[in-house]
């Protein structure tokens, strides 16, 4: 039993980190109607930015996380302005195709750029809080605790903004009907920029939070990226609620599955495969995902 609880707790913490990445992807999808295939790389960028903030300038690592979110937000705004805006001005013929290729291409570009700029070596960001906390039989690394609380705080703040503020209302309006939103005077370009910026900033924040726990390297974004793709299909494309629940679910399945499902010597090897198998099952049984309503496509 103790063992099960420890595993479940580990899964929960991992799930919270996934949530941060996946919510960003879901937000982008709900407003811009595109999948950001460079999402994992935005996560990686956030990790490196916060690493350099805290090691070069001696900024407190927790503050560096928020600064890196700002930097990745600006990066996202620039990406949106230079590469995605043509989608909404009619300059691009086949929007779906362009959106997939350009975001994937940007991801590959960021990967290679990071490899050249930062080198292939693994780096570790500074600890948020060193040491461990023990409650009874449970021992948890303090970094993981801090990260969990920060992730929860960021998610709650985001939900509050989306549901209670004017900006949130505008975001939802554009996500439901771009033309109608334009008629009531919402500048949809600005909302696009905002949604994309915030979406990738969440991924960047997650990357920065992962730094002290799982270390950072130019290729670190690939797996979180793929997992966030799995999660948004699992939860339903464009559903924030679905993204949160999907993330927690995936975190638990990976943590418990690698122990209980397969024979233990193999579990670890297949750990990163559980998500993909889950995805195949969901697509087979309920293609719209747990909370998705319809197949969405950019028109």
């Amino acid at each position: 039993m103790d063992f099960f609880v420890a595993q479940a707790l580990n899964g929960l913490i991992i799930g919270l980190l996934y949530a941060l990445i996946a919510i960003g992807l879901s937000l982008i999808f709900s407003v811009l109607k595109l999948v950001n295939f460079a999402h994992g790389e935005c996560c990686m960028m956030g990790a490196f930015v916060s690493y350099y903030f805290s090691t070069l300038f001696g900024i407190n690592p927790l503050i560096a996380v928020f600064l890196s979110m700002v930097v990745v937000f600006l990066l996202g705004v620039a990406m949106q302005y230079f590469f995605l805006r043509p989608l909404y001005t009619g300059a691009v013929e086949r929007k779906d195709e362009y959106a997939i290729l350009i975001t994937f291409g940007l991801g590959i570009f960021f990967q290679n750029l990071a490899m050249s700029l930062f080198g292939p070596w693994t780096k570790k960001s500074q600890d948020f809080l060193s040491g461990v906390t023990s409650i009874g039989f449970l021992t948890v690394d303090n970094n993981r605790l801090v990260v969990s609380f920060v992730a929860i705080a960021i998610v709650l703040a985001l939900l509050l903004i989306i549901n209670k503020t004017f900006v949130g209302k505008a975001l939802r309006a554009v996500s439901q009907d771009r033309d109608a939103a334009a008629i009531v005077g919402i500048n949809s370009h600005r909302i696009n920029m905002l949604a994309f910026g915030v979406g990738v900033a969440l991924a960047g924040g997650a990357g920065a939070l992962i730094g002290p726990i799982f270390l950072i390297s130019p290729m670190m974004g690939i797996l979180p990226g793929i997992k966030s793709f799995v999660i948004i299909v699992l939860g339903g494309m464009g559903s924030i609620k679905g993204a949160i629940i999907g993330s927690l679910l995936l975190g638990e399945i990976e943590s418990l599955g690698s122990i209980y499902l397969l024979d233990p010597t193999r579990g670890l090897a297949y750990k990163n495969a559980f998500g993909v198998l889950l995805l195949a099952i969901v697509l087979l049984v309920k293609p719209t995902g747990l909370f998705g309503e319809r197949h969405v496509r950019m028109e």
Partner: peptide
């Protein structure tokens, strides 16, 4: 022994075991 692939980053479940 437990065998793992080079890209795995979280060994916690196995270490807990």
């Amino acid at each position: 022994s437990i065998v793992a692939e080079r890209t795995v980053t979280d060994f916690t479940p196995q270490l807990l075991r």
